[in-house]
Nucleic acid binder design. Structure first.
Lengths: 195, 195
DNA sequence: TTTGATTTTGAGCGACTGTTCAAGTTAAAA
DNA sequence: TTTTAACTTGAACAGTCGCTCAAAATCAAA
């Protein structure tokens, strides 16, 4: 054997993720990254292959973090819908100011790569599909628990949730509308229960 | 006097707008633009000052086009809500394949510039606010016409519309979900009428 | 036809891009 | 202690970026 890898891979990816999330893929230069993660080009390219490779890992890690965040709120809630509501409130209200962007990194990726960059476009589609599948299992559980009616399928609830959540995050990506967040989240969950 | 301006300014801006809309500001190079609008650097910089200047004009033109598109649908509809529904269906279903992106250029701008580039960030916020004000006048008319209840203010309807519309456009920015568009638009307008 | 202000051209500037790789450093194995 | 494979470093490469400006082209006015 030989020298161990000095940097902590997970931590590096998390820092890179923050930068990519804030600035987007194209607008983030490798020199920005070098400074943020404190690695020299050679090490970065040995570990991740390319800027695209590092972004790819960052985006994957982002979705993992988001899922585990939701799981956390679900564990501390007595209902699925309550857990999701706590998650939405946390993202839109509580962690708004310490987040690199109000807009979901996955949504930003979908927007930035649409039809262009083959590999990253495919990745963002794939991760989006997997997240929708995950949400669908949650809503299936909510229906099973009689938290929600069976008028809609679990997938339809998941779709409505995504549309509403993405729309709200986009809307609150501007200054001076903070006091509208809670009422609009209330409206969102009122609607979900009445669908 | 002297030589006349050869290019047609409006047309150039419209072509540039398509490119910026598709690729985003950062990922669009001045050489991409040169080719698309068939102008050499000197002419572009004489006419628009900078890449940022051309983008600025493009984004402004985009919102003008969007407004006049809505006005067109309103003129051909017997109700405000009907006109808005025709507009939404046109954007999400009918012109989806001939549009540079499924996502609103203004939303893309809000996402790309958030907290970063001062001037373009301000511009995108300003245009967003003006568009919301425009929408609010439309919903005020709809309430006045008894198309919608007075449970919500015109502004609240406008906010709900934007959240839903933006969310839907983001959701349909992926392949293979086309057949869901009409039902989800129906759901959106059912909800608006029941708010 | 000549004039002259205006517009267009495109070579090219300096800065920055993603990436490479030879040389240096590290620490487990011998 | 020496060896050696793994890892880190940072100068530097070729290409692209936004942009400039001297020279050429253009055309209304004289």
């Amino acid at each position: 054997m030989a020298n161990k890898v000095k940097f902590e891979r997970e931590n590096v990816i998390r820092v890179a993720s923050q930068l990519f999330w804030e600035k987007g893929f194209t607008a983030t230069s490798t020199r920005d990254l070098q400074e943020a993660i404190n690695m020299r080009p050679g090490s970065i390219y040995a570990a991740f292959g390319s800027k695209e490779g590092l972004y790819s890992e960052s985006l994957k890690d982002y979705t993992v973090q988001m899922k585990s965040q939701i799981d956390g709120f679900l564990a501390n809630s007595d209902s699925v819908v309550g857990g999701l509501r706590a998650f939405v409130e946390n993202v839109i209200i509580k962690t708004k100011d310490c987040s690199p962007s109000a807009i979901c990194m996955l949504v930003k990726a979908n927007s930035e790569f649409a039809e262009k960059d083959a590999s990253l476009y495919e990745l963002s589609l794939d991760l989006s599909a997997k997240f929708e599948a995950y949400l669908t299992t949650l809503f299936a559980q909510a229906i099973k628990n009689n938290e929600l009616s069976s008028n809609l399928t679990a997938l339809e609830y998941a779709q409505f949730f995504q549309v509403q959540f993405t729309g709200l995050r986009g809307y609150f990506n501007r200054p001076g509308v903070e006091q509208l967040a809670q009422p609009m989240i209330n409206q969102m969950f009122d609607l979900i229960k009445k669908l």
